[in-house]
Simulated scan of single mutants.
Amino acid sequence: MVKKKQILVIGNNTTGCTPKHEKIAYEVGQEIAKSGSLLITGGLGGVMNSCSHGAKDENGLTLGIIPQDDPKFANEFCDIVIPSGMGFTRDFLNALSADGVIIVGGGSGTLSEVCAAYMSKKPMVAIRGFDSAIAPYIDGYVDHRKNVKIIGADTAKEAVDKIIELITA
């Protein structure tokens, strides 16, 4: 049996999550499911909920790693819930659990996950077109180390195809 690719999707929680975020996140979830990969999210609302919903509608497998210590906080589309009880520290667990990361907008929490993934040299693809904390780094690097370039994508399909290409390279 071949191990599934594990793709983390990060972005706006319920605060700041617009219908545009929700639509593209839903489509990213669908594309991840179609690829046969495991979707990992932070398990809560906003982009995490929409992405998980899209994956479930395509019969995909979803994993939510939530910051709370009670699984009841996870969104309804998580097949597997890991209640980390770690608060914001769970951002590192999310990043380290992934083979690659797709970014859909986001604020400081998302930036924390990006930095954790960056330090671990995880491939990352960010959807262009959002005013976010991540926008200045798309098609560039987080810092002078140039650990991993954050590749920009314009569509959900492009983002998933690119992250799979980067994971398997």
Rank of each mutant, 00 (worst) to 15 (best):
H21R: 10
I151P: 05
M119Y: 15
Q68R: 11
K34E: 01
G54L: 03
S97G: 10
I138W: 05
E113W: 01
K20I: 08
E158C: 08
A25P: 06
Y118H: 08
Y118K: 06
G46A: 08
M1N: 14
K72Q: 10
I40T: 09
I102W: 01
F77R: 00
I66P: 10
F130W: 10
Y26S: 08
F77A: 06
L39E: 04
D79T: 00
P71M: 11
G109A: 07
G152T: 12
F130Q: 03
V114A: 01
S132G: 07
K122T: 09
A98L: 05
F77E: 04
V104I: 14
G109E: 03
L8A: 11
G152R: 10
L63H: 05
M48K: 02
I102F: 07
S108L: 13
G87S: 09
E58V: 02
D139A: 12
D139P: 14
V47I: 09
K72N: 15
A55T: 00
A74V: 07
I167N: 00
T62P: 08
K146F: 07
E158P: 09
V142S: 02
L8D: 02
D79L: 03
G105Y: 04
A95D: 06
S37Y: 01
D139R: 13
E58K: 12
V114H: 02
D161Y: 05
E27N: 14
A153C: 11
G87Q: 10
K5M: 07
I66T: 04
Q68A: 14
N147W: 05
V125Y: 00
S112T: 12
V125E: 00
H53A: 11
S35W: 06
D69Y: 13
P136A: 05
G140S: 15
I151T: 13
A98K: 06
G107D: 03
A133K: 13
A98M: 05
S37R: 06
F73E: 06
V104L: 08
C17M: 09
V160R: 00
M86Y: 13
A116V: 11
Y118R: 05
I24T: 12
R90F: 09
G129C: 11
M48Y: 02
E31P: 03
V104P: 01
V114K: 00
G43C: 10
E22M: 06
T89A: 15
A117E: 08
V101R: 01
T18Y: 12
G105V: 02
S84Q: 09
V81M: 03
G45A: 12
I127P: 02
A117V: 12
P136L: 02
R90Y: 08
N75S: 08
S108R: 14
D154L: 12
T168N: 13
P67M: 11
A156H: 07
S132Q: 07
T168H: 09
C51E: 00
C115T: 14
K3D: 12
L61C: 11
D143V: 13
A55D: 00
E22Q: 10
L166I: 08
K34S: 07
D139T: 13
K122C: 06
L8T: 02
K149V: 03
D131C: 12
E58W: 04
T62W: 01
G16E: 10
L111I: 09
I32P: 01
C78E: 00
G140L: 07
A25I: 03
E58M: 14
V28M: 05
D161M: 02
R145V: 11
T15N: 15
K4V: 06
E113N: 09
N147D: 08
